[in-house]
Design a protein around this nucleic acid. Structure first.
Ligand SMILES: [Mn+2]
Ligand SMILES: [Mn+2]
Ligand SMILES: [Zn+2]
Ligand SMILES: [Zn+2]
Lengths: 144, 144
DNA sequence: GTCTAAATGAAAATAATTATCAATTACAAA
DNA sequence: TTTGTAATTGATAATTATTTTCATTTAGAC
């Protein structure tokens, strides 16, 4: 389940980051994104209600949230890197190429593949990226 | 198997791209890359022997090779996007975080997962990104 | 309330990529 | 082989994305 504003703020506190008005606002702007986002998009959204918050602060806050693993980076979509709100468990993403919607999924079985690859290549595998792209249901219904 | 200089040049011709000296040189620079590369890296390599070829030409040639599916884009490594020479069949990548080496692999079974995800989410899935990162065998042996 | 390190925003700096355009060139046709 | 022409090129400028610097402000511990 997607992380909430509350959970994110708690994590920020827990890691001794000050809970400034700016950070709160950036977090709100992020968690209310139904789909993926970029720093510029968050800034734009934010700018209406908080014209005095700078783009740098968006970058900085996003950087912290990435460090804490509270947002995920997306690679397979149009503007890479894009971001999406994180969840507590390990998961991957399904991305709509039209509206940018992001759906999380879990329960893949990459472990066996990973073991086979490690054996065959000699690699010590640490991490992976797995993303699917396509069209979400609502977007399929839109005639182009 | 990785595409050769010859194969790439043939494909360029086949798609009515002129085989200029600059393009030939960029292709050579790319196929002689043992690991991943960026436009800047190719330019740097190229610049020694061909000081008169500009970085723009590298970008343009790389763009064409991407369009023709002759090079692959990498997302999971340090500098994203990076690139690597393509192969003729559908495949994925294993990337060394230290030396940048790229190993291709095939034979995964994403089809079942893809079907399950499509059913559960309603998505029409078109494409995917799958990359593993870690340390290649030689790099594991280097003490840090 | 005071204090202080952390955070902020303006501005400049850096980096990556793309657009413009006049000069050059590959190569098909004569 | 020469010629014509559209494609290609490189210099330069323009955009865009991101990071650094630094003086000022502020959250939150005491
Ligand atoms: Mn995973
Ligand atoms: Mn694949
Ligand atoms: Zn959609
Ligand atoms: Zn390595």
């Amino acid at each position: 389940m997607k992380l909430t504003e509350k959970k994110i703020n708690t994590e920020l506190k827990r890691h001794n980051y000050k809970l400034t008005n700016q950070r709160r606002a950036v977090v709100v702007s992020i968690v209310t994104c139904q789909s993926q986002f970029t720093p510029a998009l968050i800034y734009e959204k934010l700018h209406r209600e908080h014209p005095d918050i700078g783009l740098v602060t968006v970058y900085r806050t996003l950087g912290i949230l990435m460090d804490l693993g509270l947002v995920c980076e997306l690679h397979a979509s149009g503007d890479c890197p894009a971001y999406t709100v994180g969840t507590s468990q390990h998961h991957h993403h399904l991305i709509c190429n039209r509206c940018g919607r992001v759906v999380d999924f879990t329960g893949h079985r990459l472990a066996e593949l990973e073991k086979r690859l490690a054996k065959e290549s000699g690699f010590r595998i640490d991490s992976h990226v797995l993303e699917f792209t396509g069209l979400c249901l609502p977007c399929q219904k839109i005639k182009c």
